[in-house]
Amino acid sequence: MHALQYEITLPADYEMDVIRRRVRSKGHLLDGWPGLGLKAFAIRERGKDGSTVNQYAPFYLWTDHEALTGFLRGPGFQGLSDDFGRPAVRNWHGLAHEHGPAHGETPRVAERLMRAVPEGGDTATTIDLALDELRAVVREPGVHSAALGLDPHRWELVRFVLRILGVPGGSEGEQRYEVLHLSQGTTR
């Protein structure tokens, strides 16, 4: 499994309904995409859920690296690049992906938490603790699914959680997103 995300930060006065319409008209094109685990079409809107920016920031889980590469080389990603500029794409090696009790429902909220793997510490223990935290989160009511990934270049972990409803609070450094559409692919 591979996780990736790109963030397209838009002007402060950008009409986010443009993105909503774009997702409504094109989001379904990735439904059933071979080699895609899921794509959460996610946005952050300035002034909502603590966001200071308008941003389109979809998150992907790929089950097949060739499908991921094909997507980045394909017309859909080229169209996005033509419209907004080619974004930098963050990627993580997938460590875990688990379904929660609300997996059959439509997620409306996403949370992303990134944190460093401390230098000089025990990497395996840090990852094991993050996996334990993921397993605890995924059992919470309203959780659709959750994933954990590792970027060994930056030595950073990412946890991404999809929920059917938002929950108050959150961890320090957590980013919250509105999920406009969820595409789920097929296994190759």
Score class of each variant (00 low, 15 high):
47 G>F: 09
79 G>W: 01
83 D>S: 15
51 S>Y: 07
37 G>P: 01
42 A>H: 00
152 P>T: 10
88 A>I: 13
33 W>E: 10
53 V>W: 01
83 D>Y: 09
103 H>V: 11
21 R>W: 02
105 E>F: 12
80 L>W: 04
66 E>H: 15
94 G>N: 01
57 A>M: 04
143 V>T: 14
101 P>W: 07
56 Y>W: 15
28 H>S: 15
24 R>W: 06
133 E>R: 15
154 R>Y: 01
139 R>F: 05
49 D>Y: 06
32 G>Q: 05
57 A>I: 05
146 A>V: 06
124 A>V: 09
146 A>C: 02
90 R>V: 00
49 D>M: 13
159 R>D: 03
36 L>A: 10
89 V>N: 04
78 Q>N: 11
138 V>Y: 03
143 V>G: 02
94 G>W: 00
105 E>V: 08
78 Q>I: 03
146 A>T: 03
92 W>S: 03
89 V>D: 03
53 V>K: 03
42 A>P: 05
97 H>I: 11
148 L>P: 02
125 T>R: 12
60 Y>K: 10
32 G>S: 07
128 D>Y: 00
151 D>W: 00
22 R>A: 12
54 N>L: 02
69 T>K: 15
153 H>F: 12
59 F>T: 07
38 L>E: 10
114 M>T: 14
116 A>K: 13
61 L>W: 07
115 R>H: 14
113 L>S: 07
116 A>S: 13
95 L>Y: 08
84 F>G: 05
33 W>P: 01
58 P>K: 04
35 G>E: 08
38 L>Y: 15
90 R>Q: 13
109 V>R: 09
19 I>Q: 02
80 L>D: 01
27 G>K: 08
32 G>K: 06
145 S>V: 10
44 R>L: 08
105 E>P: 05
39 K>D: 07
143 V>R: 04
82 D>G: 14
98 E>N: 07
110 A>M: 12
133 E>C: 06
112 R>I: 10
99 H>K: 12
59 F>H: 10
36 L>F: 09
117 V>L: 08
137 V>P: 00
121 G>P: 02
46 R>L: 12
140 E>C: 08
34 P>K: 09
58 P>W: 08
126 T>E: 12
98 E>L: 15
140 E>K: 06
163 R>M: 05
27 G>V: 07
123 T>S: 10
23 V>P: 02
139 R>H: 11
74 G>F: 07
90 R>K: 13
156 E>V: 06
109 V>G: 03
34 P>N: 03
135 R>K: 14
117 V>T: 06
159 R>K: 11
64 D>Q: 11
145 S>L: 04
130 A>F: 04
44 R>Y: 02
70 G>H: 06
30 L>Q: 12
165 L>V: 15
96 A>Q: 06
38 L>I: 11
130 A>Q: 07
116 A>P: 10
65 H>E: 15
20 R>G: 08
150 L>I: 04
84 F>S: 01
